[in-house]
Simulated assay, not measured.
Amino acid sequence: MSIGSWAGVREQIQELAKAPGATAVFGFSGHGFVLEDPLSEREVDQLEAQLGVRLPEDYRAFLIEVGAGGAGPGYGVFPVRRAGDRWHWEGDGADLLDPDRLSEPFPAQGPDPARLVALQEKCPQEEDFDEEEEFDEALGEWERKWEALMWSPERTVGAIVLCHLGCAYRQWLVVSGPERGRIWSDDRADDRDLEPLLGAGQEPTTFALWYRGWLADAVRTVEAAR
C-alpha cells in the first residue's frame, strides 16, 4: 500500500480500538481510537469553497476515506464540522485557527530572534521590586508584549491546527504558501517559535507521513502491551 493510500486505515483503527492494549497508546484518553464519519467529496468541496483554498491532497483524501477527525497523533486529530452553512475545526486550541485567512501564505519565518532575546532580557524579576503589586503590574505589561510578539494571529495564517499534545503543545498543517502540505510543531508554551516537524533524515513531514507514523507506533505499542 503506497504512502498516499488510505485503503484499510479506518478498519485498522477500528480493530485497534478493540485490542486489549489500546489504552497504552498515548492520547487514548482523548480519542479512544474513535473516528468521525468521513466527509463526502461534495462536503469537502464546500469546505474548500468556504476557505478559499484547496487542502493538501493527503489530508483531503483522509477526510473523505478515513474520517473528519478523531483517532490520531496526540489526543486526536481535530474534527472539522459544520454548523449551519459554516465549517470549523474543534479542539483544544482550534480557536487559534482563523478559517478566513487560510488562503494567505504561511510565514516560515517567525518573530525576529533578536527581538525575542531583547524582550526576554527585559522580563521583570520580583527581587527588583519593593512592592508585590508593582512587580505584578510590570510583569503583566511584559507578558502582554510577549504575547503580542509570539502569539500574533499573523504567525499562523495559512495553517490548520491539527491536534494538541498536552501542555499547550500543538501541531499545524500548512495549507498555503511554500510550506504547503507540511507539518509544523508549535511549542510556544515553552517560549519557542514554531518549527517544521522533520523526519529522521531531516525530511519535511507531510500529513500522510505524520499520520502513518503515529499509526505504526500505535500498532507497536498495542502489540507490546499484549
Rank of each mutant, 00 (worst) to 15 (best):
L51F: 15
Y75A: 04
A114N: 11
R10M: 11
D100H: 12
D85A: 12
D37F: 00
W87P: 07
V222G: 01
W89Q: 10
D37Q: 13
G4E: 15
E41M: 03
G166D: 06
R226D: 05
K122W: 07
L149D: 08
L97D: 05
G74F: 07
G140S: 12
G177T: 07
D58V: 04
Q202N: 13
D128Y: 11
L55Y: 00
G110M: 04
D95Q: 14
R192Q: 12
D98W: 09
Y59C: 03
A19W: 00
L198E: 10
M1T: 15
E41K: 07
G181A: 01
A49E: 14
W210E: 07
K145S: 15
L139N: 14
E11N: 07
G8K: 05
Y211Q: 09
R192P: 04
R144Q: 15
G8L: 09
L198C: 04
R82N: 02
A68S: 10
L16F: 14
F135Y: 10
P79L: 04
F135S: 03
Q202E: 15
V34P: 00
G70K: 00
E41V: 08
E48T: 05
A22N: 09
A189K: 04
R180V: 05
D128C: 06
W142A: 09
D128V: 02
T206A: 09
A189Y: 09
P178W: 01
D193I: 10
Q46N: 12
E36H: 01
A61G: 11
R42P: 00
L47R: 05
A208Y: 07
L149W: 01
L116P: 03
A61N: 11
L39T: 00
D85V: 06
R115D: 13
R115M: 13
V80D: 00
E223Q: 15
G199L: 02
W151T: 11
E133P: 08
D193K: 06
R60M: 09
H31A: 05
P178R: 02
D45V: 06
R180W: 03
A17T: 03
I64H: 01
C123V: 08
A71I: 00
L55N: 04
R212K: 14
Y169T: 15
V44A: 03
L194R: 09
R155D: 02
W214E: 03
G201H: 05
W142G: 05
A24V: 08
A94M: 07
D130F: 10
D191S: 14
Q12W: 14
F33I: 02
D186W: 02
G32I: 08
R101V: 02
P204G: 00
L63Q: 07
G30Y: 07
V66L: 01
K18Q: 15
A208Q: 00
F129C: 06
G74I: 11
Q12K: 15
P56H: 10
V175L: 00
L96Y: 12
R42Y: 06
R10V: 03
